[in-house]
């Protein structure tokens, strides 16, 4: 009996070691993959950025519209290439309205009922915070698209020295038992033919918010919609730490 237990325990330990090794291997592969993706993107990005900047040196001869195109290319590439946080005061209200205007198709805007609370100003990297809202809002739109009466709520609450933002929809929702997987890289809870996507949006949201010193979480129920929350340390509490 004692011996059997001992064997059993050893078997389990071996299994744990094997699984840990497999996980570590998978993690290394993922890191190598994301490294090579970012490396492969950096060179062409540098070239676009470089030659657009050179083009801008000649832009006095361009008409207004061409100048505007060149400016758009230039600002988009610099938005892509940046990796360090550049924090400044941002009017989140304006940012969210712009994001909605940018990502909605004409047929969405008439169909979706938007409930927007007045949102405050925060201290954050505007390009990154914009990405967070693009991801959360386009997810809300995507997963409520099949409802006859899609509705999206965007709200804010100041709580325990933090600004908590939420994006809620009445779409397909998710089973709370999967909530741990929502923010993982390449994790998807829906089939590709149901809802398109590669599964890195929420992982990016999590990384961006963590780099700002905040948290992300979600609540949902299958068939009844989902709410995604993120918090940012508010300015008052940051000042106390300084």
């Amino acid at each position: 009996m004692q011996e059997e237990l001992e064997d059993y325990r050893e078997g389990l330990e071996r299994l744990v070691r094997e699984r840990t090794a497999q996980l570590e291997e998978a993690n290394r592969e993922l890191e190598a993959f994301s490294y090579s993706v970012s490396h492969d993107l950096r060179a062409p990005l540098r070239h676009i950025n470089g030659f657009v900047s050179l083009l801008q040196r000649h832009s006095s001869g361009f008409d207004k519209e061409s100048q505007r195109y060149v400016e758009i290319i230039s600002s988009s590439t610099s938005r892509m290439g940046r990796t360090e946080l550049m924090k400044k005061r941002i009017d989140v209200d304006l940012l969210v309205k712009r994001v909605i205007a940018e990502i909605s198709e004409p047929e969405d805007s008439s169909k979706i009922a938007w409930n927007l609370e007045r949102l405050p100003e925060v201290e954050a990297d505007s390009g990154m915070l914009r990405l967070v809202f693009v991801n959360l809002i386009s997810n809300a739109m995507k997963y409520s698209r099949k409802r006859p009466d899609p509705e999206i709520w965007i709200a804010h609450e100041r709580k325990d020295g933090e600004d908590v933002f939420s994006v809620k929809d009445n779409g397909v929702g998710f089973d709370m038992s999967y909530k741990g997987r929502l923010f993982g890289v390449f994790q998807r809870l829906h089939r590709q033919d149901e809802f398109e996507g590669v599964g890195i949006g929420l992982a990016n949201v999590r990384r961006i918010i963590m780099r700002h010193g905040g948290k992300v979480w979600a609540e949902g129920e299958a068939g009844k919609g989902a709410t995604f929350y993120f918090s940012l340390p508010s300015q008052e509490s940051e000042r106390k730490h300084e």
């Binding site: 950096r42 540098r46 470089g50 290439g81 940046r82």
Partner: peptide
């Protein structure tokens, strides 16, 4: 490391 941004490069 070659900077991506033109001015920095």
């Amino acid at each position: 490391v070659k900077p991506v941004e033109f001015g920095e490069f």
